[in-house]
Amino acid sequence: MLDLIAAMRTEGPRQALNLWWQEMVDEYDRRESAEGILFALPYLIAFVGFMLFPLLYGFYMSLYDWDALNPEQSEFIGLGNYQTLVNDPRFWEALWNTVWFVILTVPPLVILALLLALGVNRNVKGQTLLRTIFFSPYILTVAVVSLIWVELFAGEGGFIRYWLGFVMEDPPRFLIDPTWAMVSIAVATVWWSIAFNFIILLAARQNVPDRLYEAAKLDGASSYRMMRDITIPQMRNPLIFVVIITFVGSFQVFGQPYIMTDGGPRFSTHTIVMYLYTTGFAGRDFGYAAAIGYVLFLILITVSVVNYYVLSENE
């Protein structure tokens, strides 16, 4: 996957996906030989050890009232954890908070990144500088980003509130106001992670051959038509990639609310992964935490598949 992303930067998304797929196919063809299996072994071991096994073991755990310190004493309860989940108001609250965060972040992260990418692509001269500027927040860690925005959103003398004070009376206290806390976290998140989408979409845009636009110009297409009939369809695969990655990332939000608001005020920013963490590490209820993880997993799979089909409908 990392190779794929690296290739996306160098080759452009479409090309990179093609290459990646080709590699998968080739890999399959080579499978017959014993050496081939040997070469794949380190990855396979890592995959089974760090992906497949935890995935299956997590499901296994979710069927138990899991006692992490004495696993042999765990009690099998079938789908009991899932049943509890359905009737758990804290779960639904966290899920709704998460969905709200997704709604707040995904559209700007995709649309704004697309607009930025198209805009920067036009301005050939300042491109390198703009690319650097837009990308720079992404290299910061979640802790640093959160700290910066805690600072900016702070209630007593915080930068944003201070300046808003000149245009409105009593501006919101962003991080302690249940209405604004999640919005504030969303703003910080967009600022922080838009760069990834931006870079991918910029590469995708630059991968669209200029001659298509020349042909369209001769065909009498306006800028809008070129965007609609050429740019967007040509960027479809990277766009699907970006949309899915963004959905998945936003559903898994943890660090920003954990640091910026600790889930408050009044649990309005308590997200599903925070709930999972609290349940597991504060409540030591790992079976239940595993069940939450699995439900999240199912949600993400569903959202990704739906996204994929909706977006590639015209293809």
């Binding site: 298509l212 020349e214 040509q234």
Partner: peptide
């Protein structure tokens, strides 16, 4: 115009 690489709209 007919372009060197044809510039057909791929989609």
């Amino acid at each position: 115009m007919v372009f060197q690489n044809y510039a057909l709209y791929p989609h």
